[in-house]
Amino acid sequence: MSLIQTKNLHLHYGNFHALKDVNIEIGRNEVVALIGPSGCGKSTYLRTLNRMNDLIDGTSIKGEIIIDGQNIYDKKLDVNELRKKVGMVFQKPTPFPKSIFENVAYGLRVNGIHKKAEVEETVEQSLKQAALWDEVKNDLKKSALALSGGQQQRLCIARTIAVKPEIILMDEPTSALDPLSTLQIEQLIEELRKTFTVVIVTHNMQQAYRISHKTAFFYLGELIEYADTKQLFENPQHERTKNYVQGKFG
């Protein structure tokens, strides 16, 4: 059974119908890219998976998202538990105004893990997994704000990994970075998919092609096509998909 099942999902911001009848299944350890022009609903869909849209006033949702066999919009569900299981990396790096160490330890501490040895071990492991350890191991007490943009983004990934999620959501994680940092993040995603399921929103078609197993194309709130990446890019079934991936509009 798929890890994430989205069934007949509709989302409204006030009167605006932002997602229209979306159905997607995402399997464990897959990397799924969400593509489409600006305002097509791809980020909105991503943010339904960890209920980040709850924070926006006037959002209403119909349909179901089932993760690990549980409807995440069930009233009895603990949102904070869900967000531990479904981590998120944002477009702009968002380090907290704390030390590098405390940034990674934050997720542990808010989830009640305080044992020093355990925290230290997890922080080290997470930084290693995010390919940042070698660069910062001597400066763990330094402010995270002093890192470069690419380093900050990898720190945010380390921070997300530290709470041991099953799924990592990425909302255009490289759009604010230079090409070299982008490359590092892409290589990191290659590694991450061994352990996690990754859903990534991207504007960069080559990036989607390089790193994902499956790609979903959104247009005006609708899921137009969802297929294996290779197939979607090389042999799209829909006219709109074809135009978009071939760069005819966007």
């Binding site: 960890n50 980040m52 924070l55 904070n80 538990e81 967000r83 531990k84 981590g87 998120m88 944002f90 477009q91 702009k92 968002t94 907290f96 934050y106 997720g107 808010v110 989830n111 945010c156 921070r159 997300t160 709470v163």
Partner: peptide, 11 residues
């Protein structure tokens, strides 16, 4: 974004 990042870690 900073608030969301905190929420996203289960805080």
């Amino acid at each position: 974004e900073l608030k969301e990042a905190s929420f996203a870690l289960g805080a």
